[in-house]
Design a protein around this nucleic acid. Structure first.
Lengths: 225, 225
DNA sequence: ATTGAAATATGATATATGTCATGTTTATAA
DNA sequence: TTATAAACATGACATATATCATATTTCAAT
């Protein structure tokens, strides 16, 4: 079992605000878990007994709409925490987390985290800061959903994934999503997403290699109306 | 100038987590401000020098979309805080706040709040909890925007305003919004909003008295598809 | 390599919503 | 009170997107 105090991953999330002693403590009570692509980490309505630190891989946070469609709210990658919100609000989770590729997770029990929330102001404050940023992002998503076309939303999603998660050596986006996943991010029908991807190809904004997507004209994508 | 430690408003926000001494301190450095209906409290891009506690009235938080349309992200009423997010994330505000009726605000300087964020874990934790709740609400809004029809979104908005802010003695919604405001909440054209309001009237779900709206069949509204 | 299922792709059509035009009502100021 | 602008309302039409049908391709399991 790895040692949290030496783990490089924590730099990317609020655990960096913990003291060395606290990290040593966590090391001794944390558990590890591997999750296969497509596997459910937790589901809407579950009561979490702690939070996860993502050591490897990427997952989607989804919410089921009353019309039966899934909406992807956020992608969570290596370095980020998972489940902190519902721990704080002390309610069941309002989102499901599903692995998009094979993942490695560290699980930290709730009691542990609650203790640091009591004692370590830096930790609480850092969580608060992260959440304020999430909220700002959520505001942007709301505006985009409400005011922009499917074409614009897809273009922005491609740019976001490119900028946030990067590309592989062949230039394709390193986060591989199905057309349906894209549809569930931008909030549209899968067919519409596929059609717009085809348009973007014709307009020489992207190319595809199988289901992989490669951006070839990011400035053009930014101009999409 | 009123005394914060005796102010009943604080019960409704995170200031309740402050100690009596801290509240006395705030009393001595806070300033009051009245804002007329339609007036701008702060604007997207402003750098706030503190936070507001809403003593009276209601305002809308809006964000300008790149296509020039305003989106209303949230309504903030008596009892709530205003500006805490950008204070925490230490950035300019990402939303504008505009009064929907005459308001009374108390302004608390940033330095004061930052001090309590350092010293008072309860305060920080309470802010964190409030923000987790906001984030959950934002998730719901995203799903609604992405997956539901204008009819459904308007119905839910009417129910939300009814449940959250109540009605006047004549049964009309106590928060008076223009048709354009409704349109900017649900993310649609003003004409579409007006049309759906007319439909709801024909379907005997609501009645209108001038621009005031009265819900007469809330169960029916909940069933709108 | 073969097969079957899932994902991708595209056409035809229906529907919801946006846009523009125009008229009506309501509120506000002179 | 009248004048005037803003808000509300509705029709006609355009357009984006959803839906349903049907190929085609890709991928995994045998």
């Amino acid at each position: 079992m790895g040692k949290c105090e030496q783990c490089i991953i924590k730099q990317f999330n609020s655990l960096k605000a913990l003291t060395n002693e606290e990290l040593v403590r966590i090391s001794s009570c944390k558990t590890s878990r591997t999750v296969k692509k497509g596997e459910v980490i937790f589901e809407e309505g579950d009561v979490l007994k702690g939070i996860y630190c993502v050591r490897e891989g990427i997952c989607k946070l989804t919410k089921l709409s009353s019309n039966g469609k899934d909406q992807i709210i956020k992608l969570v990658v290596k370095g980020e925490l998972l489940g902190q919100r519902s721990l704080v609000s002390d309610e069941s989770v309002n989102l499901s987390a599903i692995a998009l590729n094979d993942m490695e997770l560290c699980f930290i029990p709730k009691a542990e985290i609650m203790m640091y929330l009591q004692k370590n102001t830096n930790f609480t404050y850092d969580l608060l800061r992260e959440m304020a940023i999430d909220l700002k992002e959520a505001d942007d998503i709301i505006v985009n959903m409400a005011q922009k076309s499917v074409r614009q939303r897809l273009a922005e999603t491609l740019i976001y994934i490119n900028d946030s998660f990067g590309t592989k050596s062949d230039g394709t986006l390193s986060v591989l999503l199905s057309r349906e996943d894209f549809a569930n991010i931008i909030g549209t029908a899968t067919e519409s997403t596929i059609r717009v991807i085809s348009q973007f190809k014709k307009e020489k904004l992207i190319t595809t290699i199988g289901k992989q997507i490669k951006i070839i004209d990011i400035e053009g994508l930014k101009r999409v109306e």
